[in-house]
Measured scan of single mutants.
Amino acid sequence: MSGNGNAAATAEENSPKMRVIRVGTRKSQLARIQTDSVVATLKASYPGLQFEIIAMSTTGDKILDTALSKIGEKSLFTKELEHALEKNEVDLVVHSLKDLPTVLPPGFTIGAICKRENPHDAVVFHPKFVGKTLETLPEKSVVGTSSLRRAAQLQRKFPHLEFRSIRGNLNTRLRKLDEQQEFSAIILATAGLQRMGWHNRVGQILHPEECMYAVGQGALGVEVRAKDQDILDLVGVLHDPETLLRCIAERAFLRHLEGGCSVPVAVHTAMKDGQLYLTGGVWSLDGSDSIQETMQATIHVPAQHEDGPEDDPQLVGITARNIPRGPQLAAQNLGISLANLLLSKGAKNILDVARQLNDAH
């Protein structure tokens, strides 16, 4: 009898209710805020589980004197976190989706994509230029951005401005803007500013005609071990179906173009009346040469937790077992079709030249 009692006690200790789920994140304040929001949602869904947040620095956090596009290494903000995932030191990792490459290392998958916040870019102005827009900034004003995508589009749109690289986390960039006289304004992701509670610093939100956004911008991705079915089931509740389908289309477009950090590629997606609209573009580094096109596809946005595919093969690095396969494939095909259209119009040449120029500098 006593033996059975011990077995029952052991089973209770090993039951999922007692389990601590370890969540990996970057150390920056924004990353911690984003991770806290994901953990809060998981806690609400699984009140019996405990969650421990483990923060670590990544290569991208450490190399702050070089433009991201020049470092010449993929997975700048993800490699150390993936290493911890691989060694079973954490069970899942919360990322900004735009930091996750469209091809993940073997053994990993994006197990959830959370509801997207505003994906557009924002302009934050130096205190002396508050009330201005990019259009009304004085001639030769210097605007800071760490992104080739932003610089290429904005140089084309605002030729009277000069664009220079600015690195560091959000706090560091804002301090550089406010305390030094080098920059009249800087460009940042609206979602990051909003998550930090800095709505009052948003001086201008850039519309798609001015600057399309990065693939996955404004959404959070939760990376897990691809074979860890328990954790895949656990994080599945975080999937937002519309965000998922938009981001599958965007990531398929980028992957098929073979774009990345070192080339200016941008997108804009919208879901309306059962249609998914995808606009994508590529630019030369100075913005003088560009190709942009829009395509659409009829896609039914499923309700969360309709029964999805059981075999769960990944699409552009994403596993969404609780979302039907048909809409996911339709979104992926839309991204591939748009990429093929741009490639047929000469996108590869623009991107190759951009890559060579970026590598040469």
Rank of each mutant, 00 (worst) to 15 (best):
P327R: 02
K132T: 10
H95F: 11
P241Q: 15
S262I: 12
A303Q: 02
D273F: 00
V142G: 10
R167A: 10
L85C: 11
I350G: 00
S337C: 09
H207E: 14
Q217G: 01
V103F: 11
L278Y: 01
V103Q: 15
V94Y: 03
F51H: 09
V237L: 12
R195W: 05
A152M: 09
T319E: 04
G281C: 11
L193C: 01
A252T: 15
R321V: 03
V39H: 06
R156V: 12
G144N: 02
E117M: 06
D311R: 10
L188I: 03
D240W: 02
T319M: 01
Q194F: 00
A84P: 07
R22P: 05
G111C: 03
A191L: 01
L30P: 00
D65N: 05
Q229I: 04
E293I: 09
R167Y: 08
R116I: 02
A31R: 00
F51A: 08
F253A: 03
D230F: 04
I291A: 13
H239Y: 05
V235E: 05
E310M: 15
P127M: 04
K176R: 11
I33T: 12
C211A: 10
R26A: 04
P159F: 09
V38Y: 02
L30T: 00
T294E: 00
V316F: 12
V20R: 12
P208T: 08
G281M: 01
V267G: 05
L30E: 01
L188K: 01
L100K: 01
G60D: 01
D178Y: 13
Q155I: 15
S75C: 15
D233G: 07
G168L: 04
G346H: 05
A266G: 05
F253Y: 13
Q34W: 00
A354E: 11
R173K: 04
A331P: 02
S37M: 14
F129S: 07
R164W: 11
V93L: 09
S28A: 07
R225M: 13
T190A: 13
L351T: 13
N333H: 15
D286W: 09
T269M: 05
D230I: 15
D121T: 02
T319V: 02
S28Y: 01
A252Y: 02
C114H: 06
H95G: 05
F129K: 04
V215K: 02
H126N: 11
E293W: 14
L206H: 00
N358T: 15
L42A: 06
F51W: 10
R175Q: 13
V124R: 03
W198N: 12
Y213T: 02
A226T: 08
L285A: 13
A185S: 05
L161R: 04
P241L: 02
K132Q: 14
T279P: 05
Q229K: 08
N358A: 15
T78C: 13
D65K: 14
S165T: 14
K27G: 09
I53T: 07
Q181Y: 14
G107A: 10
V103L: 07
K345T: 15
Q328A: 06
P324T: 14
I54L: 10
L285E: 06
I186W: 01
K272F: 13
H160T: 14
K62A: 11
Q292V: 07
L278S: 07
I33G: 07
E182D: 11
I350V: 13
H207L: 11
T41Y: 10
V263G: 00
Q275S: 01
V23Y: 05
S75T: 15
Q275G: 15
L341I: 00
V93F: 04
I113F: 00
